[in-house]
Write a protein that binds this DNA or RNA. Structure first.
Lengths: 217, 217
DNA sequence: TAAAAAATTTAGACTTATCTAAAATATGAA
DNA sequence: TTCATATTTTAGATAAGTCTAAATTTTTTA
């Protein structure tokens, strides 16, 4: 098995790799709150284990073996988040740190039974897809709310910022996963957005919030 | 917070301390499959943190602070074991290693909510008492089955050996927690025991098995 | 009660994962 | 295309937890 540090690096590289073909040492260092030199050391180790493709100064990608491990960790993270919210009644802004610990529980059988216990959920509390026991999952077409135009409507289906303050704000505004919204106005001056939630409540959000809310059309 | 290694030492000292006022370096080393010199190093560290009472060559006891931590870990271990058996349908011989990992998940609120989710169980799948959120628990008077006499009866309420082979054997013989048994014969020659389970099945067990089965009268 | 045996501790070394500081390489702007 | 800057790597150090081998202390036993 892999150490906790190795697992965290693989997960990090996977996440960063979603937005770029190649992931740089500095990106990883920033993401893990560590130093570039520490990252280089770990990259050598992961390359020795054939979990990443790495050439000095050229950045990294995951090998299929590395990606499989990363997806397994993400599967565990999201299933435990679902458990914490659906079974233990935590709020969606409270579960991230706990799931960061729980994602490293090693038993494959445990996670598969947990999945079954909860009825094979397809999305975690933040709308992110949960990989199945073979690591497969669909990434639905989601676009930032900020790209919609006036009168366009859609369903809140994900977030790009997973931090507590943002999630708490959304909760208070009733901007939660599954809610249908319609754009009623876009203010030219600051690109803030007015919108209607379901059929009643009308609210106004900043460009930044609109950028971090993901919509399914 | 404490490291994983520290938590394991505290738990180990707690368990060994159940059978002796003072716990020795060698006992800890044997129990943790490590070397006495490693134990000495860790004892210094735990003493510096005021979690154990330690004087060179004299063995250790837990301080109240150390005991509180140990009981917290045991609470988590037993609650997760209960979860694995009652919610995820694992067998009682399969859950120990998983719970060894899960007992180190740090959130106090998580464990308290887990406790509530399961209805505040009093005993884990092996019959061991689960401390409440204040660390309190009752240790019922249990005696080895080997101390009973012919015609005496009691209820199977715990085990002294928690290893898979023993638990699997018990399961196969239907010698599980809660079953009422009555001694029908004790063979002088090898101290093996014949007994009746509930009102029907009659079986024969070795002295060793009888020694590791705990009975409530 | 003194020597032998057992238990424990100390000394020094190793591994993992991290760091700082310095060196090497890549990038991009003039 | 060359030089300044940014990025990345290397070198050497540190802390946690472990190890072996040697030294010390306690316990046992004759």
């Amino acid at each position: 098995m892999n150490t906790l540090a190795e697992e965290n690096y693989l997960k990090c590289i996977y996440h960063l790799g979603m937005n770029a073909a190649i992931v740089s040492t500095n990106q990883i260092a920033a993401s893990l709150n560590t130093k570039a030199s520490s990252v280089t050391d770990m990259l050598k180790k992961l390359a020795d284990k054939a979990l990443i493709n790495y050439t000095r100064y050229q950045g990294v990608t995951l090998t299929p073996a590395g990606e499989k491990i990363a997806i397994g960790i993400i599967r565990k993270h999201r299933l435990w988040e679902y458990f914490l919210v659906e079974k233990l009644n935590f709020k969606w802004d409270q579960v991230h740190d706990m799931a960061e610990e729980m994602e490293h529980i090693s038993s494959q059988e445990l996670v598969d039974r947990l999945d079954e216990f909860m009825g094979f959920p397809k999305h975690d509390p933040h709308g992110d897809p949960i990989p199945d026991c073979n690591g497969r999952f669909k990434t639905p077409e989601l676009i930032p709310l900020s790209t919609l135009v006036v009168n366009q409507c859609g369903v809140i289906s994900g977030v790009r910022d997973h931090t507590s303050p943002f999630l708490q704000y959304l909760e208070k505004q009733q901007l939660t996963i599954g809610k249908k919204i319609t754009i009623t106005d876009i203010i030219e001056y600051d690109h803030s957005v007015a919108l209607k939630i379901e059929t009643d409540k009308e609210i106004h959000i900043s460009r930044e919030v609109a950028n971090n809310l993901l919509i399914a059309l």
